[in-house]
Design a protein around this nucleic acid. Sequence first.
DNA 1: CTTTTCCAAGTTGTATGATGACCTTAACTG
DNA 2: CAGTTAAGGTCATCATACAACTTGGAAAAG
Lengths: 246, 246
Amino acid sequence: MSLDTAGVPARRLKLADMVIETLRKGISAGEFGAGAKLPTENQLAVQFGVSRTVIREAIAALAADGLVQPRQGAGVFLLDRAATAFTRLGGESSNKISVALNVLEVRMGIEIESAGLAAERHSASQEAAILEAWNDFGRLLKQGNPTGKSDFAFHRAIAAATNNPFYIEVLDSLGSRTIPCDVASPWGTESVLTFEYQAGLHEEHRRILGAIASRDAEAAREAMRDHLSRSQERYRARLAERSQSQ
Amino acid sequence: MSLDTAGVPARRLKLADMVIETLRKGISAGEFGAGAKLPTENQLAVQFGVSRTVIREAIAALAADGLVQPRQGAGVFLLDRAATAFTRLGGESSNKISVALNVLEVRMGIEIESAGLAAERHSASQEAAILEAWNDFGRLLKQGNPTGKSDFAFHRAIAAATNNPFYIEVLDSLGSRTIPCDVASPWGTESVLTFEYQAGLHEEHRRILGAIASRDAEAAREAMRDHLSRSQERYRARLAERSQSQ
DNA sequence: CTTTTCCAAGTTGTATGATGACCTTAACTG
DNA sequence: CAGTTAAGGTCATCATACAACTTGGAAAAG
């Protein structure tokens, strides 16, 4: 079921991880100018008091995230995050940010169809489950509690209502990575969701719910498409905002 | 000078990058069981013909992406979501008809959206690639040769035209085993495909192609949905056929 | 025979040093 | 001044060694 090391609070004291986190924080704090060159590996090694091996591993991780780009003979450079987030042009360098948006996009197709199938096939109990998840969301929202889980539960209930277990499987495997609603950004987990933001989600969910309940597959698809499109926009906007403000 | 280095995508062929890509593909292809332990760093180093440093860097990148989790003294383990995402779907479990059909259904959602996005975003060369695949299909059909590969190429070209590399990845990992159209039916050759059958596919493809070329996203979605629905029916029929004889 | 303890092999994490490939800059040449 | 060359800086890779940790089984205790 869940990951063996649920939570990962374990004593993973890898030096590289600490370096990664520190560098990430420094980058998001704007310590280095946009597109600037980071200190050399040797300098960082001295600065962190670790070997160059550790620095290299950290930089490899950051490069995999698409935050930096090392260039042989020149140095390690910061990438313009806004640009990389929006340029879906060439599949050239698949950084994590664009990957997240891309995965989201694929998710859209899956969920849209999922909503349509759910509208056509759902049983009474499955509809009740969707409604319950929606109500949960509303209750948590009123209480000021985090709504992320009930949000995901809502989508999951719809997937379940397709009577195609594979939808749930796919959603679970994708969902933990890129949930459009409360995405954990690479630079911080402090997803600040305003009340209005979540209320908007709730309203969009209501429309999906209504379409499914009335077994209107096309309306359900449309509502889901609208919902996910907006989520995508919100996600994009938050990325841009983050990359500019800091 | 300019801070943006995006102009030159860099022909950089880092060994580590190649290892990363190979490992990622292997993982995606399900070469290692879910949650399994990868070969040791030394083994991988020998296998790839590189030093352990390179392997370590690749693993660090994969770990940053959340695909694997190295544990000191134990080994490097796959995280389950990496294995369950799209990997195993075409594997052993797809022998069961219901599962295969379920996977197919999910595929529909993906491809429908893929067609819509392709209509909106495709470049001239990407459209040409789709057209070429379509022409290939027609030529092979006239010659009486197997059309499976060009069929898949057609769908793949559409996925490429979304400019979302993840679509291609998903399509590839879902693999040729569960192509709704016809491509490799798991049980037999393409001898079961009549000329009329393939001609029908070709015609359906033409409609998709036309919609994409005219940048009509909705029409592209509709054409793809129609195509895949028909394919699903055909597939279902053939499965029923086969399941009786077996 | 069962249980516990403990060790030794195996694996990842880190350090160190060296070499090659590549980039940048500045001095040099015409 | 333009073009070329040389030198140093920087990343990429390799090789080796040791430390930290896990694991499985041997050895000891009951």
